[in-house]
Nucleic acid binder design. Structure first.
Lengths: 197, 197
DNA sequence: TTGCGAATGTAGGCGGTGTCAAGATTGTTT
DNA sequence: AAACAATCTTGACACCGCCTACATTCGCAA
């Protein structure tokens, strides 16, 4: 029972194995030749499906953002306004923590520089959710005097920064050891105000 | 007039050229062999000064953080408390924007994983400045009811996040085009309160 | 001054990588 | 059945980090 000439599902297999490798060994240990080796396929076979390594990473990034969108939309079904923003923030942070591989790819400048249209659309979709959250909260009286422009910058920075502060090895050295999930919620509450009881 | 056998200042030349390359072409286009080529030196010469590529990146990272510390200490001579925090935040963000190469290296997981002691010390020094700022501001009545723990997490996340939101290509697609420096100041004011007149 | 060790640079090689080109094999359509 | 497109293999090229052995130069001590 030898390997068939055609793998049959090589493209998906490459993506799946790539995510495994990234979770286990990090982005820089990922190589097309290594994937080909793992899947018992010649070293140039992956090129039929991904002309360049960046194309593979782009595709992975896209499914990663899709997962984020999916999770965010689920929480978005809750009551609009402040509570939804809180869930969104929490959702992003836990998504980033639990999907280190995706998060790492998304933050790779070389991958993003030539982002695909689909990837850009997904990111825009996420951003517009934030905008709507802000809009709804403001019409409910929350920080109604502030410019939405500034609130968006602040919310996006805080959300992205919280995730990175919790994940990035650089910040690990200046992170308090006893950090708990409650503290993260308290941190976002400094911006959103205390949760409704 | 041929090249002398000994370059004379190869170590510094390597560091300087490395920063140039990173600013022009990014971290992944940086190679020891490429640097050797640029400096008209044999491909293995850099190894005398940096046994491994990570050692070069570590050293660059360290001087990068040193520059950040230097700039921060200068602003820290101002009146303590809220105003100092504002300057610190602004200083970090502009540092990150103007030193993309340093910032990119600092955020490389593989470089940070085996950070040198000096690098860790520099980071700790920066963190302790933030702690002191918070302490001073709280003793002046600012958010005196909150836990310093949470304030630190919030401030660090917001600062790091703002820099990344402004720099990272990933966020470029969801960034408002007409973003001005004033908006960044307004954003931090949402946390610190309006500046004293 | 001479000599010798340490520092620095060179030449070559090993295994790894991404990517290209030419050919072999298989699936699909007409 | 034949033609065609998709897929995979083989081989090559240039690049990379890093290792070893050797050459040159510097600096210091006898």
């Amino acid at each position: 029972m030898t390997n068939p000439y055609h793998h049959g599902n090589l493209k998906n297999a490459l993506i799946e194995r790539a995510i495994e490798v990234m979770d286990e060994q990090g982005l820089d240990k990922l190589s097309l030749r290594g994937l080909a080796r793992d899947l018992d396929v010649s070293h140039a076979a992956p090129l039929r499906h991904f002309p360049t390594k960046a194309d593979l990473l782009r595709e992975i990034a896209q499914t990663g953002v899709a997962r984020l969108l999916e999770a965010s939309k689920a929480t978005g079904d809750a009551k609009p306004g402040l509570e939804r923003m809180r869930l969104r923030h929490k959702g992003y942070v836990t998504w980033a923590r639990e999907n280190a591989a995706y998060h790492q790819i998304l933050r790779n400048p070389d991958v993003m520089r030539h982002a695909s249209d689909g990837l850009k659309e997904s990111l825009h979709a996420f951003a517009s959710m934030l905008w709507k959250d802000i809009e709804a909260a403001q019409s409910n009286g929350w920080r109604s005097g502030e410019e939405p422009f500034v609130l968006y910058l602040h919310l996006a920075s805080l959300t992205a920064g919280t995730a990175i502060f919790l994940i990035d090895p650089m910040y690990a050295t200046v992170r308090e050891p006893g950090l708990k999930d409650v503290d993260i919620e308290k941190s976002i509450d400094l911006f959103l105000g205390p949760a409704d009881e």
